[in-house]
């Protein structure tokens, strides 16, 4: 994932975005197209929620420009969209894990990207917030590229899945295509049963649901 958001430079191969090698673009040009929501943010320095969300403007603004009223509206709008309007002036540090993720999504919204990358966005969250955050991401109307450990959540939320084992891609396809009992055994080393989830996805497809078997060595 770090290669995708230009943290690491690949030693081999090329990453392309809209058919352009991403390393050919300037860093702020790329940032206008791709926004990232990370798991862990270092603490301290009590920036307010508004300040953090306002950071989404960074790639768009030149050095000497200041925040216009329109920008302010966008920021406030984004904060409302993620449901943090009451916490706008609060210190970012004082938010819960789920709230912090939502604030970072608001920042990504302000960044107005074409692609949103999310690095294990649900790992530390309570179940309710896991669902809430992913639903929110889906509703933004941009392409989302997220990494998951929870396969059922991935199955329910995603249109397409990419399975990686030992640094190699093993499967690409829709959840129905990818999530088979064989694949679970080969790649993840677990015994499971795959059924259809009671709900149907918005696009009318069935959602595979995995039931894991326990009690084996």
């Amino acid at each position: 994932m770090r290669c995708l958001y230009r943290f690491n430079k690949p030693t081999e191969g090329v990453i392309e975005f809209n058919n352009t090698d991403i390393w050919q673009l300037k860093s702020d040009e790329y940032a206008k197209k791709v926004a990232v929501v990370l798991q862990e943010t270092p603490s301290q320095f009590n920036l307010s929620v508004f300040d953090v969300v306002a950071l989404g403007l960074t790639p768009h603004k030149s050095l000497f420009s200041s925040i216009t009223n329109i920008d302010k509206q966008e920021i406030t709008q984004a904060i409302s969209t993620v449901g943090l309007a009451d916490h706008s002036d609060q210190s970012f540090e004082s938010l819960s894990g789920g709230e912090k993720q939502r604030a970072l999504i608001a920042r990504a919204i302000v960044q107005q990207p074409q692609l949103l990358i999310m690095d294990e966005p649900t790992s530390h969250l309570d179940v309710k917030y896991q669902i809430q955050v992913m639903e929110l991401a889906k509703s933004l109307g941009v392409t989302v590229f997220a990494s998951f450990h929870d396969l059922n959540l991935a199955s329910a939320m995603c249109d397409e899945l990419v399975v990686i084992k030992n640094g190699e891609i093993t499967h690409i396809g829709t959840p129905s295509e990818v999530l088979t009992e064989n694949m679970l055994g080969d790649v993840f080393g677990v015994c499971a049963q795959v059924n259809n989830h009671p709900q149907i996805s918005k696009s009318g497809n069935s959602i595979p649901h995995i039931t894991y078997f326990y009690g084996y060595e």
Partner: peptide, 23 residues
């Protein structure tokens, strides 16, 4: 003062700042 946005971006971590376009 001109670079204040980039400075704030740094506060959230190197990785985060890179995703916002800061070198």
């Amino acid at each position: 003062l001109s670079f204040r946005r980039q400075l704030n971006a740094m506060l959230l971590g190197d990785e985060s700042a890179i995703t916002l376009g800061v070198r």
